[in-house]
Amino acid sequence: MIRSSPSHLLAEREKELDALYEIAALYSRPLVDLQAVLRQTAEIVAASFEFPEHTSVEIATAEQRLAGGAVGAVVDRYRSEHRYSVEKLVEITVCYHHGERGRTDRKPDGHRSLSIQQRERHLIDCTTALLADVLERRDIDEVLRESTRALQRQAAELEQKNSALREILSQFQVDKQNLERETETYVATFVFPHLHQLRGSTTLSASDRERVRQLELSLRGLTAGQSPSGLKALYSLSPRETEICGLIRNGLGSKEIAAYLHITPVTVERHRNTIRRKLGITGRKMGLTSYLRSLT
């Protein structure tokens, strides 16, 4: 068959179109094994040429290089390159050879020597561009996967930090509540009774008594609205009852309290009953001493 005949050109054109279809189908699949894809690409390109038995194909990427096909003296060569992922390069080089295989296999018909045709060069250019697109998509996918993994690691680390921060804040809230409770109990038990006595003293001037009253108001507002109900109940006690609570909390019995305050033990017991009622622990098995100590 003469190379320039319409039927011959049509047959060669069909081979090239079939090759492009096969390459497009090959590149549409996920890129798992680059070496296998390069080998199949080289086989498809070589088979599409007019004289595949005289053809060698070399494909080089940034990671791998593959070469195969005919050997011997190079008669014609065409090289196509395409950049991908900014700085990377893919190259496809196709050669026609004379050699042992050229002498034993089919030789070109007609009078024209072995030469790579323009349509074949176009096929190489298209294949190079398609392969570059595939490699660039692979690199982009890898960057996205790595970015996803990095974001997942950062999210896990952030969650750990948030968990630790929540624990710290929770402990801080507990410590804050304990401090407020201890402060309020201390003030209610040990400070207010003395302030009440000062306000009732006849040796103080009116201005001094007002200063004492202002001091008492300031102390009451120190932790107002932040106390457990048990501590707030202390404010319902009279100064004498509050004073007795402090003595009970410090471990004094009724007779000791009576002697300390210069009142009778019966009066102390009456105060104790009133205190239990105001604090809402009447009928409970918990003793008054234990209850008062539990508030701090």
Rank of each mutant, 00 (worst) to 15 (best):
P193T: 08
E157N: 10
S205M: 11
P193C: 11
R220F: 04
K161P: 03
H111Q: 10
Q171L: 11
H122L: 14
L123G: 10
T128F: 14
H194Q: 02
V143T: 06
E157H: 13
R145Q: 13
A188S: 12
T128G: 10
I140F: 06
V90W: 03
R149C: 06
D208T: 08
R106V: 01
D208K: 13
L135N: 02
R137F: 03
G99L: 03
T93N: 05
D208Q: 06
H122A: 14
R138S: 08
Q160Y: 10
T203C: 13
R149V: 09
N178Y: 15
F192I: 05
L217H: 12
F192A: 10
R121I: 13
T93C: 11
D139K: 08
E81P: 01
D208C: 10
Y84R: 00
E146S: 05
A188W: 09
G110P: 11
H122Q: 15
R101Q: 03
T203Q: 03
L158A: 09
E136C: 04
P193K: 13
L204D: 00
R101F: 06
L130C: 15
G221D: 02
V86F: 04
Y186G: 14
H194V: 14
N162W: 09
R213H: 01
R137D: 00
H82V: 04
Y96T: 04
S201L: 07
Q214D: 10
I92T: 00
P193Y: 03
E142R: 08
R220W: 03
V191Q: 13
I124F: 07
D133E: 05
G110E: 02
S201P: 00
T185L: 15
Q154V: 11
S147W: 01
K161N: 01
K88L: 09
H98T: 06
D125M: 08
G200I: 11
L169F: 15
D133Y: 02
R211I: 04
L144W: 10
E146F: 07
H196T: 13
H194A: 10
K88W: 07
T128E: 06
V187P: 05
C95V: 03
L165Y: 06
L135D: 00
A129Q: 05
L165M: 05
T127K: 15
Q171S: 14
E136Y: 03
E184W: 10
R138K: 11
I140K: 07
A156M: 02
R220M: 07
S147I: 08
S170K: 13
N178I: 11
Q118P: 14
E146L: 05
V212K: 00
R112P: 06
R166L: 13
R213D: 10
Q177P: 12
A129S: 08
L204M: 12
L114N: 04
T148M: 06
Q117K: 15
R138W: 08
L144C: 02
R83V: 05
V90K: 03
K107E: 01
R121L: 07
E81D: 04
V94W: 08
A188E: 09
Q197R: 08
Q197P: 00
I124N: 09
L144Y: 05
F192P: 09
T189D: 03
G200E: 11
S170Y: 11
R166A: 11
L198S: 02
K107N: 01
T148A: 13
E184M: 10
D208Y: 08
L144K: 06
R83P: 02
E91V: 12
E184T: 10
D175S: 11
S85M: 00
E136G: 00
L198K: 04
